[in-house]
Structure formats: structure tokens, C-alpha cells
Design a protein around this nucleic acid. Structure first.
Lengths: 226, 226
DNA sequence: CGGTTATTTGACGGGTATCAAACACCGTGG
DNA sequence: CCACGGTGTTTGATACCCGTCAAATAACCG
């Protein structure tokens, strides 16, 4: 059942922000709330796609699995993010596997129901398309990164992104396990660890999952040099 | 001006296939036809995004440019494909650069106009979302490739894809310059050339842009081995 | 506290990028 | 028809980044 806090997240999430409360209630009237423990799978690549999801709390990772067991993390979503909007148009199969990387709470919305709503209220379609556009942009950025940045540059860029600032000092927690971050950045955990160690010479101190950057601007300059 | 042949392409393209002819005419009533010569740019990364496009003939590449001039090709579209649907929801800026890699003909459709149509006919929104979903899937597949396949595997997979078959012999033309293909696959032209040369031992003969594969199934098996 | 999982560190080898030069291809103009 | 410049492709030699394997250490959790 949706709590009051749940609704507050949903009212402000990217996908539903533009909807008026009445429409939102309509959409949510038959939604299911799900709770996942760490590492629990939500759906697997190839499963029939019947719902899209909005994260209320926790973190969900979308990944693809190779026959040999290797995993490629495609995206990670947190509170307020929605995913699998595309699924309802992809011939009914999820193209990725989704699992929780921390205890999570989310709502699942039946695609069929949502389709019906779109026909009545096209504004919902705009919200979905905006959300999909954002995902597209994220994937494009990722491809760009992998194609024209070295591992060191990707790590630097990741740190700058996480710092949320353009210059000065910063301190923050890594959003999840280092090995998962390494995967997201397209490198091995070993390499990620080494890069982090190297950056100590440039004002980056890592103690556990806490990162302290002396000067973000200096990192940005380092990015340019190569 | 739209010729009869142009319309025939548009009627069958992924984006408009589901539309009834009357709606299509409506949508196209204020569209612009564009002709681009090889290497001519359609729009640049950062330009205000006012239109989406459908390719009638030729090929368009979407790429991102690094400050140092390096280029990352993100996708290549041919006749019947549409692109930049997402732009109308991305704050008004194209996130990539688009240019023709062969003489091309395309229609540009004003996003504002299309938005208005969606409000009247939500079915159009479904078509757009389906198209965006396909793009999403393509990008996910690309990320997966780069993350868990070696250069050789990517070349093999590319050849299998191009062959359009699952087994037996095949012969086909490469869709464009080898250096562009190399970029798409995330490797240098030199490496691509060498990989192709290596594959001669496995029934792949390349003479110019014509590829002859002795047995596609054998290639698929090779993919699995590593 | 013990056992499991993450992370670090080291040594090593191979796969790719890089640089450089030779070569093929193609449309142009003489 | 051939010479010619430009572009694209191939081939070779070299360097080095990064993945792999292995072991030690640290962090985590019941």
C-alpha cells in the first residue's frame, strides 16, 4: 500500500511531476508496491514486460549478462527515477535485468493500464517521452565516455560529477560499491582502485567510501591534459 | 517538395507506419524536405532543437565531438529511420551532431507542430515512444558490446549482423567506410583492418567493401570461444 | 569473533593504440 | 588515356595501458 511519504516521492518524480494530482491518483489506482532486499532481482532479461517502475527508495541497477556470466551494468536508478518505460513498446520483453543494489521500495505500474491513460490524457505521454529522452541522453553520454576517454579520465569525470561542483573543495560518499562503480565506468575493480590511488597526487583522498577532493577545478584541468 | 516516392517511404517508416494516411498528411503538411551532400552537416551538438527528422534516402551519422577533435559515432541511420525525437524534450538542444555520410534526402518536422498533433491524436505518441524505445535498445546493446566484448568479438558480431543470416554462406557490402565502421565498433581503423585480416583464417574474405563469409555459423561459434 | 565479501597491491602478459610509411582507390583535369 | 592529388586502407614496429591471476589486507555481518 502506498504511504503518504511514497506519494510525496511520486508527486515529485520526473515522470509524474507534470501530472495533476487527480490524474496521478488514476494512474496509481492499480499500481503495486514492491519491496526488494539487497541483491534481489526485480526482473530478468527476456522476461515478459508488463510494468514500468518508479523508485521510491533504494537503488536499482539495470544490467546485461553475457553467456559466460560477465555482467555489464547499463544504468543505476535511485529515488524518483523511473525505468522500463520503453519496455511496453519493445515487443513485450525486458532487454535487461533489474536488481536492487540496496534495500529498495518501488511501485510497479501496469503498462496496459498506462497506455489506456495516455489515450485519455496525452500529457502523460509527454512525461514519458521526456523521461525516455533523458535515458537516451544518459546512454549517449556513456557511449561517448567509453569511446573517447581513457580509464583515468573516466574516473576523474566520475569524481567531478559526484562532487556536484565545478571548483573548490568537495567531500562526498561513493553512491555504491567500488566494484559496481568500476563496472559502470567500464573497467575492472583493480584498475579503478589503482586510478584512485594515483589521484592522491592530485588532491584526491579516499578513505573507505568517503572521497575528499582538494580542488575540483584542478581535477577538471587534469581531465583536459589527458 | 515531397515526391510520390518520398511519401511511400514515409508511409512505411517505423515512426509513421501506424498512422492513418489522413493523420500523416496532417503531420507532413508543414514539413521541410532537405537534401544533403556527403559530409554535409545537418545540425551540431548544442544547436537549438526544433525539428525531428526522417531519412528518406542516404545515411546520417550522429556523433559527439571531444574538445580535441576526436569523434565518437553514436548511431547511423538509413532510409525509413527517424532520429532526434528526443530532442523536443531535452530542453531544446541537440546533444549530438548530425551529418550525412552519403548524399541524403530527409524530411524535417517541427517539434512544436508535432506536439500539437499528439494532443489531438495520442496514437502518434505511441509511434514516437516505440521509436525511442528502439533507439534505447540499440544504445544498450552498444554499451553491452563495448563492455564485455573484445575488439575481435565486436568485429565478428558486426559481420554476423550484417550478413543477416544465422548460418551458411553470405556475401554483402559494408554499409560505409571502414574507418567509420571502426569508430562505431569502438576501435581504430588499423585494428579493424587487422581483425578482418585475421578472420581470413576463418572463412572471411574481404575484397574492397565486399565481404564473403564462408559459414556464418562458424563465425558464431568463434564468437563463443573468445 | 570467525567467516565471508570487498578492496588493495604486486607481477606479468597481451591486446590495442600510436606512429609511420607504403599502398590501393577514385574522381579530376590535362 | 594517363598523370595526379587526395582520401581511405593496409601493414609493420613499438610502447604501454589495462586486464588477468594471485595473494595479502581490510571491511563487513551475523
Amino acid at each position: 500500500m502506498l504511504t503518504f511519504d511514497d506519494k510525496s516521492v511520486l508527486r515529485n518524480c520526473t515522470l509524474f511531476r507534470a501530472l495533476d494530482p487527480r490524474d496521478l491518483d488514476q494512474v496509481l489506482s492499480h499500481s503495486a508496491v514492491l519491496t526488494l532486499s539487497r541483491n534481489q532481482q526485480l526482473f530478468a532479461q527476456g522476461d515478459p514486460a508488463t510494468q514500468l517502475f518508479v523508485v521510491i527508495a533504494g537503488q536499482i541497477k539495470l544490467s546485461r549478462l553475457a553467456p559466460n556470466g560477465d555482467e555489464a551494468v547499463v544504468q543505476v536508478f535511485g529515488a524518483g527515477d523511473s525505468f522500463a518505460e520503453a519496455a511496453m513498446f519493445m515487443g513485450g520483453r525486458y532487454p535487461v535485468t533489474a536488481s536492487a543494489i540496496s534495500p529498495s521500495r518501488l511501485v510497479g505500474i501496469a503498462s496496459a493500464r498506462l497506455k489506456a491513460h495516455v489515450l485519455e490524457r496525452p500529457e502523460i505521454a509527454f512525461a514519458m517521452m521526456a523521461s525516455m529522452a533523458q535515458h537516451l541522453h544518459g546512454l549517449v553520454a556513456q557511449i561517448e565516455q567509453m569511446k573517447l576517454l581513457t580509464t583515468r579520465q573516466r574516473v576523474i569525470r566520475f569524481l567531478i560529477d559526484q562532487s556536484g561542483r565545478g571548483d573548490g573543495a568537495a567531500s562526498f560518499e561513493l553512491p555504491h560499491d567500488k566494484s559496481l562503480i568500476a563496472n559502470r565506468l567500464g573497467m575492472t575493480p583493480e584498475t579503478f582502485s589503482r586510478m584512485l590511488a594515483q589521484l592522491a597526487d592530485h588532491g584526491v583522498a579516499a578513505t573507505g567510501s568517503r572521497i575528499r577532493v582538494g580542488d575540483v577545478g584542478r581535477l577538471a584541468k587534469l581531465l583536459g591534459d589527458c
